[in-house]
Amino acid sequence: CHSECLGNCSQPDDPTKCVACRNFYLDGRCVETCPPPYYHFQDWRCVNFSFCQDLHHKCKNSRRQGCHQYVIHNNKCIPECPSGYTMNSSNLLCTPCLGPCPKVCHLLEGEKTIDSVTSAQELRGCTVINGSLIINIRGGNNLAAELEANLGLIEEISGYLKIRRSYALVSLSFFRKLRLIRGETLEIGNYSFYALDNQNLRQLWDWSKHNLTITQGKLFFHYNPKLCLSEIHKMEEVSGTKGRQERNDIALKTNGDQASCENELLKFSYIRTSFDKILLRWEPYWPPDFRDLLGFMLFYKEAPYQNVTEFDGQDACGSNSWTVVDIDPPLRSNDPKSQNHPGWLMRGLKPWTQYAIFVKTLVTFSDERRTYGAKSDIIYVQTDATNPSVPLDPISVSNSSSQIILKWKPPSDPNGNITHYLVFWERQAEDSELFELDYCLKGLKLPSRTWSPPFESEDSQKHNQSEYEDSAGECCSCPKTDSQILKELEESSFRKTFEDYLHNVVFVPRKT
Rank of each mutant, 00 (worst) to 15 (best):
K103Q: 04
V104S: 07
C105Q: 07
H106S: 08
L108G: 08
E109A: 12
E109L: 12
G110D: 12
G110Y: 10
T113I: 09
T113A: 08
I114T: 01
I114H: 02
I114V: 10
I114E: 04
D115S: 10
V117T: 08
T118N: 15
A120W: 04
E122Q: 14
L123R: 03
G125S: 05
C126Y: 02
C126E: 00
T127F: 15
T127N: 09
T127R: 14
T127L: 15
V128K: 06
V128N: 15
V128R: 08
V128A: 10
N130A: 10
N130G: 02
G131Y: 02
G131N: 01
L133M: 11
L133C: 01
L133R: 01
I134W: 04
I134G: 05
N136S: 06
R138T: 01
R138K: 01
G139Y: 01
G139E: 02
G140H: 14
N141G: 15
N142S: 15
N142Y: 07
L143I: 12
A144D: 07
A144I: 03
E146F: 09
E146S: 03
L147H: 00
L147E: 00
L147N: 01
A149V: 06
L153H: 10
L153F: 09
I154E: 03
I154F: 00
I154A: 10
E155A: 05
I157S: 02
I157G: 02
S158E: 07
S158C: 13
G159C: 06
L161M: 07
L161A: 05
L161V: 08
K162V: 14
R164T: 07
R165I: 04
R165S: 04
R165T: 05
Y167I: 04
L169E: 13
V170I: 14
S171E: 10
L172R: 04
L172V: 14
L172G: 03
S173D: 08
F174P: 07
F174G: 03
F174T: 06
F174K: 01
F174W: 13
F175C: 02
F175S: 00
R176W: 09
K177Y: 11
R179C: 14
R179L: 08
L180G: 10
L180K: 10
R182H: 13
G183L: 02
T185M: 07
T185D: 11
L186K: 12
E187C: 07
E187K: 12
I188L: 11
I188K: 07
G189V: 14
G189I: 01
Y191M: 09
S192T: 04
F193K: 02
Y194G: 14
A195Q: 03
L196W: 14
D197R: 06
N198I: 04
Q199E: 03
L204I: 08
W205H: 13
D206E: 08
D206N: 11
W207S: 09
K209Q: 06
L212H: 01
T213W: 07
T213M: 06
I214K: 03
I214C: 15
I214W: 04
I214T: 03
T215P: 13
T215I: 14
T215K: 06
L219W: 05
F221K: 00
Y223D: 03
Y223S: 05
Y223N: 02
N224S: 00
N224A: 06
K226S: 03
K226G: 02
L227N: 00
C228S: 01
C228L: 03
L229K: 09
L229R: 12
I232A: 13
K234S: 08
K234R: 10
E237L: 06
V238W: 06
V238E: 13
S239G: 07
S239K: 12
G240L: 15
T241L: 11
K242N: 08
K242E: 10
R244T: 10
Q245V: 07
Q245D: 12
R247F: 12
R247Q: 05
R247G: 15
N248H: 05
N248I: 11
D249Y: 07
I250K: 08
I250V: 15
I250E: 15
K253Q: 13
T254V: 06
T254D: 05
N255H: 02
G256T: 00
G256V: 03
G256R: 02
G256A: 13
D257R: 09
C261L: 03
C261D: 05
E262P: 05
E262L: 00
E264L: 11
L266M: 05
F268Y: 10
F268S: 03
F268R: 02
F268V: 09
Y270V: 14
I271M: 10
I271L: 08
R272F: 14
T273S: 07
L279Q: 08
L279Y: 12
L280S: 06
R281H: 10
W282Y: 02
W282K: 02
E283W: 07
E283P: 02
Y285F: 05
W286H: 01
R291G: 01
L293Q: 01
L293W: 01
L293C: 02
G295I: 02
M297F: 00
F299Q: 13
K301M: 14
A303W: 09
A303E: 06
Y305C: 14
Q306F: 02
N307A: 15
N307H: 11
E310W: 14
E310S: 12
F311C: 09
F311M: 06
F311R: 14
F311E: 04
F311G: 09
D312T: 15
D312S: 12
D312M: 12
D312C: 14
G313L: 07
G313R: 11
G313F: 07
D315G: 11
A316P: 08
C317V: 10
N320I: 04
N320F: 10
N320W: 09
N320K: 09
S321N: 09
S321E: 10
W322V: 08
T323S: 11
T323H: 15
V324C: 11
V324G: 01
V324L: 06
V325P: 00
V325S: 13
V325T: 11
D326H: 02
D328F: 08
P329M: 05
P329W: 04
P330G: 07
L331T: 14
R332L: 03
R332M: 04
S333V: 08
N334I: 13
N334G: 08
N334S: 13
D335P: 11
S338K: 13
Q339N: 14
N340Q: 14
N340A: 12
H341Q: 14
H341Y: 12
H341S: 13
P342N: 06
P342A: 07
G343D: 13
W344N: 14
W344T: 14
M346A: 11
M346H: 05
M346R: 07
R347S: 03
G348F: 12
K350D: 09
K350P: 05
K350C: 11
P351N: 02
P351Q: 03
T353R: 07
Y355K: 04
F358Q: 06
V359E: 00
V359M: 04
K360W: 15
K360H: 00
T361G: 04
T361H: 02
T361N: 02
T361M: 05
L362V: 07
L362I: 09
V363P: 02
T364D: 14
F365R: 11
S366L: 01
D367L: 04
D367R: 06
E368V: 15
T371S: 06
T371H: 09
T371I: 10
T371R: 05
Y372N: 05
Y372P: 06
G373N: 03
G373H: 02
A374H: 04
A374F: 03
K375L: 08
D377F: 05
I378P: 04
Y380E: 03
Y380I: 02
Q382V: 15
Q382M: 15
T383N: 00
D384H: 09
A385E: 07
P388R: 06
P391R: 03
P391D: 02
D393L: 08
V397A: 15
S398M: 03
S402F: 07
Q403M: 09
I405H: 05
I405R: 10
I405N: 09
L406T: 02
L406P: 00
W408K: 06
K409V: 11
